[in-house]
Design a protein around this nucleic acid. Structure first.
Lengths: 106, 106
DNA sequence: TGTGTATTTTGTCAAAAAGACAAATAAACC
DNA sequence: GGTTTATTTGTCTTTTTGACAAAATACACA
């Protein structure tokens, strides 16, 4: 099923992951759920900015939240991230190595 | 290795995939390499727009290109896309179903 | 060499996203 | 009930992205 709407919804997921702060938070959530305050401390942005980023991730379906006590805890809602992050990580490393390999030419 | 630069480079990959036209092209490339003209026909955008999108994908390391004869052929440069697209696809489907389930409430 | 074809680059503009700050909300707890 | 704490929302400014058109490049081939 490769139609436009389907692709657009998938693109939304990728887009949500396509920001350093958001990816950093998502990456941290691999260790388990965290409250907004934890995530704020992690990325160091203004609280309102963090909240907005989290909203983007929620709307894309990447994370889910639930309130317990005083805090709101976020957790991953996407199961397969692990392998893909490993994969993109390898790609990043490979490209870094390739670029080192290119340097001698200059 | 979860540092900022590394995360940023990974975010760049996600960002590149986070556009409907780009994801559509990437998805099409799962079937094998295609020339720019094929991809342009596929997404239906202006040729210059397609070219820009391809540049984004290239710079993120998602695709690679080589010229043969008159045309430039693009292919996937990222191996693990298959499983992740299946996964995000399932997520999209699940969310669509969930939303249908929500409707009766309204 | 000249010509047509495929692709990329650049200019310009409109639209979307990010970030900062203040204000609002909500819920827990005294 | 009022205060504190955690989070979201409104609004504004700045930055980035995307689309289309026009110009430039590259290059195969007659």
């Amino acid at each position: 099923m490769r139609n436009r709407q389907y692709i657009a919804a998938q693109a939304k997921i990728f887009k949500a992951l396509g920001h350093p702060s958001r990816l950093l938070m998502v990456d941290a959530l691999r260790d388990g759920e965290k409250c907004v305050c934890d995530l704020q401390a992690l990325v160091g942005d203004d609280m309102s900015t963090v909240s907005r980023h989290l909203a983007v991730l929620r709307e894309a379906g990447v994370v889910a939240a639930d309130k317990r006590g005083t805090n709101i805890y976020y957790r991953l809602a996407i199961c397969c991230l692990e392998t893909f992050l490993d994969c993109t990580g390898k790609l990043v490393e490979q490209r870094a190595l390739d670029q080192l390999g290119m340097l001698p030419k200059a």
